[in-house]
Write a protein that binds this DNA or RNA. Sequence first.
DNA 1: CTGAAAGCGCTTACAG
DNA 2: CTGAAAGCGCTTACAG
Lengths: 327, 327
Amino acid sequence: MRKKISSDQIAELAQVSQSTVSRAFDPDSNVSAKTRKKVLDIANEFNYKPNALARGLITNKSKLIGIAMKEKQNPFYYEVLSLFTQKLKDHGFSVLFVHTENEEIQQEEIAKFWEYNVEAIIVTDAFLSSDLVKKLKNANIPVILFNRENEDLQCNTVSSDNIYASQSIAKYFYNKKHKKILYVSGNHNTSTNRDRFYGFNSFFKQKNEEIEVIKGDYTFETAYQLTLDYLKAGNIPDAIFGANDITALGVLEAVKEIGLNIPDEVEIIGFDDIKMASWPNYQLTTWSQPLETMVNETIKILLKGDLNTNRRIKIKGNFKFRSTTSN
Amino acid sequence: MRKKISSDQIAELAQVSQSTVSRAFDPDSNVSAKTRKKVLDIANEFNYKPNALARGLITNKSKLIGIAMKEKQNPFYYEVLSLFTQKLKDHGFSVLFVHTENEEIQQEEIAKFWEYNVEAIIVTDAFLSSDLVKKLKNANIPVILFNRENEDLQCNTVSSDNIYASQSIAKYFYNKKHKKILYVSGNHNTSTNRDRFYGFNSFFKQKNEEIEVIKGDYTFETAYQLTLDYLKAGNIPDAIFGANDITALGVLEAVKEIGLNIPDEVEIIGFDDIKMASWPNYQLTTWSQPLETMVNETIKILLKGDLNTNRRIKIKGNFKFRSTTSN
DNA sequence: CTGAAAGCGCTTACAG
DNA sequence: CTGAAAGCGCTTACAG
């Protein structure tokens, strides 16, 4: 098994020192144009590329970012992953990816991130114990929570402003003079659900109105089944807020099945604005998360590399009106 | 900015040599139980973990696998990614992930894999030029194509047996005595579409029957729109094969919208068996790809690390009957 | 079972 | 602008 070619060999072929080969690959290094061209040409010919492992070792910058994601069959997070890999690449970072199962990420799940000396860990739709965050901080690995918040955690956080969003949705329903309002929730142990419920519910509380709640889990199946049961029991809401799009789509199908007219008899609003929301058969009105801005803000924090900040960045989204509301 | 603790420092704390610290972390190394415990305890106390970059450099084994994926809003491939990261972890590998845009992956898109010395590259739902494959082979990086095939490419390939599958679907429709058969295709430049069309079409050719074709692109929207146009033009097929589930779901919605009864007037079969296919509102009959087996086979090849094989592994799937067929 | 030492392939002061 | 040399943090023959 032949080994890959190294800078030593390129140096010999180009008749320069190994340091010069190294410099030729660094645009900021002072190398004469002629020498650089010679080196790069030969490197190209032999398909030489600097070994990132060696580089990472000596510079103590792995140029690696760990992304841990708890997949929940929610396409939203795959859009997140795609966006991150693309944008991070623009900054010279590569992505070490790990899939996690639990809402709270365990140390062993991200141990590899540690070993590979990642420059930051982005945790998407899950969180970690404050103990783990502390350990990581000691090891000089900043953690950024994406779309999860936790007051106790000493780390940076980027999410959309869930309370503002759900209040806006509540306000929309309120102005429509809807009386029977239903919230179909997401997982109870998530900050997103907590905030969306809080914003939505507190708005109506203020107006002295009660809302009804179905406890979902951010999946289509649960939302569909429980909403169907609810409707079959004779409950006819005027307006339904599904805690995420997948949930709202489950709601939508249940309402359709019962034969209620959407949006005339029931208005439905989701959250996320995943691609499916715009499918012709759904045309779901939803709250659009400003994904691109969120990703950009995350990368901004990461580029600063400031470990001791504890920022809580919340980004406002906006309505995306389609045909499950009448406006 | 404090640096991470190294084996040197652990050695000093444990009053052993640095080599002994290293050995303590290798279960196959001969270290007395007592020494190992002492070292590991101290390592644990100080959150020391061997630096994978340094290890990769000296062993010339990065324990990194590159996965390149062309996302196509097809949830199937996210299940693939999840499965791979989980199973590879069991073998001590970590995943460098990259998202690509084009059907044919460019060198610069996977240059990072090269630099990080990945032990293999898994390409999912896309392919590479034979030139690139050759270069990678020279650099000692095996490529495994997952769910794409290409006769010209000198690399290993793992996919489900698309021809067998589509022939089985054709046979199913044929035995039902369906006359007007429609195939809604995927992208024409993919091997999956080529094989699925070939298997399906050739079966009917043999029986001297013609099928009709709509040119889709593996997306819901296109399948929905074109099928709707087709139906509105007065075409009423007895049976439709959608080249993947997302396509079949688009077809399903179009057929529903026209008001045809499924499965009595029209039978529909998809391909993949994504989670959505089993959603209560769809209940799509489909051809189930044996995902787990496919992933296992891929990892098997990878563990062998045999660069010069050129295997074409095809795995047979099976029907998953739901309510878009009557049987 | 343990230690001293070489070396993986780079980057980067230092010197000229 | 260029080269010689040190060193990043490991693994692994080699010797004892």
